[in-house]
Nucleic acid binder design. Structure first.
Lengths: 210, 210, 210, 210
DNA sequence: CATGAATGAGAGTTCATTCAT
DNA sequence: GATGAATGAACTCTCATTCAT
């Protein structure tokens, strides 16, 4: 039905409108200092309207992160399913990380803030579970790649999940630190170069020398 | 003057008492949810007293981080000054990082939260400057070690500051991610093992093969 | 005009539909906590539609009470007009009260809540007047019965309006208290028995001994 | 300790100050329409201060009612313990009801609103329990008086608890209806006379003729 | 007529901070 | 210095009501 569809589309557009505004505000002020009114104003809506689309502030915040977490999961799984040896897959994985970052830089930083900060302690159990599930899935996919590599004798024999954790930590650590630096001293953004170097070092560090 | 000194010492002890309490509360609830009253209660003082020792909540919070940042700076500089080749120094540096973490695990996580989170955006310019100065100094010290290594042909030829940033990112990334995981799924704490593996990979990744 | 009439009938049916829904919701949640959306949902209508039939929430609420108040008035007047001595009329009056209660238990409780609660203080003057008029009329009818009885020497010589007030107070008091008890401790519903005993006591209490 | 005591007294006085203000506002506007700010203004305090003395709005409201409920319980028990036959005790009981009303007319009306209205449905379970316990105790005390009367052959043979319920219903019914009338038509206050007549009728209605 | 998304005023509540004692 | 009661601005969220479709 045409009307049904149009309404659905409009609803989705509104959600987007709110999400876009929320991203800007959360980026600017962080979760704690951002007020629902700020976001409403940015979205050119009334505060009440936000609650038609999101249960509460936390839910809105989490939506931003879940979105990118889902994208991440899909992207990584894709890599995992591809053919090729482990090192080729690692390169693809690194490529995937760039993609994820490019997909939505603000959101990815938001995600790390969510993961690394106090916010985590105040989430609803349900949301926690969702995040947990999605994170675990991605880490597991990454770990599988390393596992293959270890079996193929191409990657050093460490616990694959530990390797995945380190890979993920390096990625998030660089992004957070680079964005911190930008805030602290307003320096130029070296994210891409640093991330590239970091992944190279990691790659070299886990490869078994022939 | 004896009296003067005693007063000074007592004042310092009070500050410590508050800082210890604040650490516990911030750890438990995060910065946003921790109230000054919580901290006062934990310190067995009245809320008003806190303001005799710290200008405001932010100032108190920052003190925690500055303290560890100072310790970090001193510890790294020490490594830098030591004799030995770059790789030996790198090992010492890694050792220093463990020390720093052990010195005050809560504080180090607090520091990363400060760096990586919304709090950063709401600091006073003065405090920002202080953090900036201290961070820069530490990164510079680390970078100098890598610089030596590059000159000595032991470390790959990359911009030393980039290497320092990556080293630091890896350290903070692993700590944040591991502590996140603990919150998310209550899993066992693998921090030491993961950190060890991470540094090994990093070391291997930046070393020039002979 | 047929069309005119049909429209009128349909309009009235819609009103009924809303009133039925509102009763259920008010009963369940009380006036303060019931939302217009609750009622709309229950009536399977949209919130906006409610406003086509009732000026506002208060008007809707009052409609429930006025309706039973009107029924009460008619029913009592009927008793008053009947032949028979005062005591026979009193028995009829008591019978009428049961009828009124049975006519719509929810509404009668609603009416008492309206009378006895905060809602009363926030009614529009016009509505207040309507309630006042209807109440007065009923009380006056009851009082007339007692007046007859006093003249006939069958009922103790007290101000007839006072007797009417007491009769009414007893009725509402028992209903409210019994429904309170049900809410407080979920006990069995003894309303009928208690009401019966109460009226017997009242009857005995006002009768002049021969 | 003098200071301790003085503080205690001052705290109690503040509580009273708030209670007095709350009573006025609740009386004027009812629970739903009264705002904490209204009460704060009436008490010449800031909104925040109210929360130093009462957990929340409901708690404040309930405090008013529990107070009178406790007084009621004590007063009735006292009657029950006195010597004298059942009819003498009934007279004392009636006297007690006047006392309770005089003790705090506003509060007693508040209590009935609490009992008879929607508020009841939204109380915390703990508060509900407290009200339940206190109510039950009072009703039981009243019932015991009637029980004695029945055994002594002075009072008609009905279930004593039913008699107690009717007695209580009559009391609350008259008070609510009279205060309603005052609101509705601003008529003179006939409460005392009506209550007196009501109790007389009740007394006569339950007495066994010799 | 009917809809239901949008509104926005206003509620209860919290908490960093102050200041009289 | 130390206290802790008091403050009041600011927050999140609700819901009666409206109005474009």
């Amino acid at each position: 039905m045409g009307i049904q569809e149009r309404k659905e589309r409009e609803r989705e557009r509104r959600r987007q409108q709110i999400i876009v505004a929320a991203k800007r505000i959360f980026k600017e002020k962080g979760f704690g200092r951002a007020t629902m009114e700020d976001i409403a104003k940015e979205a050119e809506l009334s505060p009440g309207t936000l609650y038609l689309y999101f249960k509460n502030k936390e839910d809105l915040y989490a939506s931003l992160s879940l979105r990118i977490l889902q994208y991440l999961g899909i992207r990584i799984e894709h890599v995992d399913r591809d053919a090729g040896d482990a090192l080729a897959k690692l390169d693809e994985l690194i490529e995937a990380m760039y993609d994820v970052y490019d997909f939505d830089p603000i959101m990815i930083i938001n995600l790390f803030h969510l993961q690394s900060s106090e916010t985590l302690k105040n989430l609803s159990p349900q949301l926690m579970l969702e995040i947990n599930t999605l994170s675990k899935k991605s880490i597991a996919s990454i770990a599988r790649i390393f596992e293959d590599g270890i079996e193929q004798g191409m990657i050093i024999d460490r616990h694959p999940v530990a390797l995945a954790d380190i890979f993920w930590s390096l990625f998030s650590g660089v992004i957070l630190w680079e964005s911190s630096k930008k805030i602290i001293d307003g320096s130029k953004d070296y994210l891409r170069e640093t991330l590239g170097a970091a992944f190279n070092i990691f790659r070299k560090g886990i490869t078994v020398k022939k």
